[in-house]
Design a protein around this nucleic acid. Sequence first.
DNA 1: GACCCTGATGTCAGCGACTGCCATCAGTAC
DNA 2: GTACTGATGGCAGTCGCTGACATCAGGGTC
Lengths: 190, 190
Amino acid sequence: MVRWKPGARERLQAAALERFAAQGFDGTTVAEIAATAGLTERTFFRHFADKREVLFAGQDEFERLFLAGIEEAAGSDPMAIVAAALEGATAFFPDERRAWSRARQRVIDADPGLQERELLKLSGLATAMTDGLRRRGVDPTAAALAAESGVAVFRVGFATWIGEGEERPLAEVLRAVLAELRTLVTTPQA
Amino acid sequence: MVRWKPGARERLQAAALERFAAQGFDGTTVAEIAATAGLTERTFFRHFADKREVLFAGQDEFERLFLAGIEEAAGSDPMAIVAAALEGATAFFPDERRAWSRARQRVIDADPGLQERELLKLSGLATAMTDGLRRRGVDPTAAALAAESGVAVFRVGFATWIGEGEERPLAEVLRAVLAELRTLVTTPQA
DNA sequence: GACCCTGATGTCAGCGACTGCCATCAGTAC
DNA sequence: GTACTGATGGCAGTCGCTGACATCAGGGTC
């Protein structure tokens, strides 16, 4: 006989998303999530550092994809490397995941606390990208700027991809947004 | 006889920054801040929505400067308008404020929770700028991109301005960073 | 002067997030 | 069989934060 059912972590994540969607983030207690997953509050906090984190697990994998894109990119032009990183990260969001991403994003968009956490994650991503670029010999300030721009492109692109009616795969959307950034910044000032 | 000394809000802010710098954000309780300011915990929460917010009051004024820059900018090129907004916002950070900004930033950089809040504020700024640009007829996606880029430039520039040994005024640093962004994105890919 | 109203504060009770400490007990190794 | 490990539960306690109610100086009204 097994003492505990396996997959506690996954059960907690599923229970949390379901509850948050139904009653809101603030309207859901950790004890409630744990009970839904057949566990206790104490166990929840052994799997996730805090209540918000339950929605952001797996982010490490996402960051690793980004960095892999940077490592493997050819050439030394910062924005070209960033473009490669963006390309690599799209593997984390296949089309099958779009509906799930939408649901998760709805929950996040409804709570400032969750938005904070999301921003922190993206900021960490930018920092990691900056380091990766610098390791490839890019000038420090240029690296920071390129990384921040890359994350900005991702944000705008991801929001578009999530948007109603949008059907293009993420990679295609990101390429379009990046092209738009180039146009925007290149256009002579009025 | 006065029942309460005036300037409770300012006293709380000063006490908080002093304590945070001395014992860290987590190592300081709200009750302690309030006591230092000669008040109670309950009163603290009447002035600030939460413990973090005590370091971010006055942000509205900052945002207003940004928006004013957008309203008053000439021409219709998005990045030119953003440049004007950046220019306008520098009024919020005269050179006399550099030392204070450094101290405050040290506290923020030492605590992830405070970084989250800072990011949320900057994100709100980007959203406000996006709206401002759209109101001026800029294409929605271009507006979002231009605003995000503008905030990225501000972030990088502000960090530089705060940096050790840096002596140029913020406006000058921001102009340099913006120029660098243009170069970066314009450079042909390798 | 008596009256009332307002506004900033204090007091208190209570919830929920989070942590430290110790107990439990199936499975595994030896 | 004994010892060890690892995921969990139980419990007490701190702290952030909120709602409800009380207090009391100052200002206005009559």
